[in-house]
Design a protein around this nucleic acid. Structure first.
Lengths: 343, 343
DNA sequence: GTGAAAGCGCTAACAT
DNA sequence: ATGTTAGCGCTTTCAC
């Protein structure tokens, strides 16, 4: 059997309580006693049993992160940011992939695994605003993403409308006027797609341009292959455009590849900007202009808020909402090369 | 306080043991009794306390996956494969990022967190063969990667030498003879870099070509930016080559981008093949030929082996080694376009 | 400053 | 087929 606190206590000739005190950095221990205990721990190779501690204290120091899909670069980078933030505070992270499925998200949220973690960061995709009642679980939770607003929990998100508006303005400033809103979900009002489309509209309006519905291109799933396929259809249709506001980087990269195959030059013929600032955008050919959504800030804030809820520091505080700062990252795909660009 | 088994037992008017039996699908329960218990569970919203179960049974149904870095596409895809395989068998996964640091890997391996998981999948990067003595931990473990061989534990890996040899042969067959071994670590014998360089040498030898040391390009860290930088130096140096065997996809993509910037056409001027078959290789311009290392098979096998160790099914079995099947994936970056390709 | 003892919620002997 | 009971290893009052 593994060595327990009792063994350590015996070896150090103190009570089990004293060992516990040393381990948990409690005050009121003579330096000499602490030394002795530490030595015994070292000698016996003692390691606390986390299950026992969890049972007794109600804390496991594990938090859960629910995301749609780790293979998606955006979520891999989010997971990394969350794990880094959690690790700084002594927590480890269990990642649960939902596949964006409603059923699976509910299963996870209401499953027994929730009882073994101190809290949850939930990046919503399957559920929507109408499900706001279903996310009121006993485990402390912080919501991520833009599918549900004003729920019963803290919420950390990015400035979708403002960022999308800035991205659109970025292209308008470069003289492009026939801009695709690439990645729309037509009948969505909130959700990333809905909000980003709204930002696109506002930018057009501010520039005195009309919104033309045929320029809003539906791309249901935001993977690279979907972006590629949607762009293929656009090119076949003969629709005229000189710029693309893509609602995430993956579909932007997919679309870029298809346009280049078709002989279009980027940015000379078509300027394109993405969303998310995934690592890859710095290495594509051309490099992709994009929106930095403030991922690190999102992760840090979400973890901090969650921990406050867990140790009750924010007990009296009502549900908070936090929007991270964003930045337009200008790269080659929207570079200004010469006067005839907008021709 | 949360509802416990005792409450359920009371509500269903049975003993606590019966409730436990129902939950754990033990035999010998009258259908009618089971019904009653299930109903009570439902009504009270009972959820088992996993810490308590873990304490009592010594099992947590959590396994740990130690990898260098989630932002690295290869590891993100590996993590996804592992989580999927684990989930099928009722386990969840804690991901620990080591950053490839020796110290950090040892810290994790010997840390208290190991006592809260049933087993570990450890993708070695920081440690090396000389550390084989340090990885003999009490927690069941399966080793991944190619830094340590013939250790005290099961080991799942890919066929590095054979795969690299096949990749090199793939280029040789296309008439390329001046091939960079891109991503070498000069003084490494085992490790991915060492083994892949060996495969490269064997392929040359089989083709009756001499190994030329100046064609082995050191790239210490295998991120895209490192590949880009190394290729910049190669181009500046004026070294002549007509093909690139890159030791992973990321550095291949970085290098490809730099070559294109320099006006080189791929595959006409330079043919290039990568390693890992990360998703992105299907969408780059041109698409990147690569080696499919058998990721799913690796994940499935590693998880299966680990679980056998955990439930003692493989108690008597000595440490096993398993090599996954690989495949050469031929894409545009090594396509045969015309007769003058090899000019 | 340290010790004794209770008990967290569960599982597994053992009993019936 | 079901009930009784001990105890996993730890933290936490409460004494001293």
């Amino acid at each position: 059997m593994a060595v327990t606190m009792r063994d350590v206590a015996q070896a150090a000739d103190v009570s089990i309580k004293t060992v516990s005190n040393v381990i948990n950095d409690h005050p009121n221990i003579k330096a000499e006693t602490r030394e002795r205990v530490l030595l015994a721990i070292e000698k016996l190779g003692y390691q606390p049993n986390l299950s026992a501690r969890g049972l007794r204290s109600g804390r496991t120091d594990v938090i859960s992160l629910i995301i749609p899909d780790l293979k998606n670069a955006y979520f891999a980078e989010l997971a990394d940011a969350v794990m880094t933030a959690a690790s700084k505070r002594g927590k480890v992270v269990i990642i649960e992939q939902s596949g964006g499925s409603r059923t699976r998200e509910l299963e996870i949220l209401h499953g027994p695994r929730m009882r073994m973690v101190d809290g949850v960061l939930y990046s919503v995709l399957g559920l929507g605003q109408e499900d706001v009642g279903l996310i009121d679980i006993p485990t402390p939770m912080v919501l991520l993403g833009e599918r549900i607003f004003h729920g019963p929990t803290d919420h950390v998100t990015m400035q979708n409308i403002e960022a999308s508006q800035a991205a659109t303005k970025h292209l308008l400033q470069r003289g492009r006027t026939k801009l695709l809103a690439f990645g729309a979900h037509r009948n969505e009002v909130i959700g990333s797609a809905g909000l980003r489309l709204e930002g696109y509209r506002r930018a057009l309006q501010n520039a005195g341009l009309d919104y033309r519905d045929e320029l809003a291109i539906d791309v249901q799933s935001w993977h690279r292959s979907d972006g590629a396929q949607a762009m293929r259809q656009v090119l076949e249709s003969g629709l005229e455009f000189d710029g693309v506001v893509a609602f995430n980087d993956s579909i932007a990269l997919g679309a870029m590849r298809v346009m280049q195959d078709a002989g279009l030059r980027i940015p000379e013929d078509i300027a394109i900007i993405g969303f998310d600032d995934i690592d890859e955008t710095r290495y594509s050919l051309p490099t992709l202009s994009t929106i930095d959504p403030g991922r690190r800030q999102i992760a840090e804030t979400a973890v901090a808020m969650l921990l406050e809820r867990i140790d009750g520091a924010a007990e009296a505080t009502p549900a908070r909402e936090f929007e991270a700062d964003f930045k337009v990252i200008s790269r080659e795909s929207t570079a200004i090369k010469s006067a005839e660009d907008s021709a």
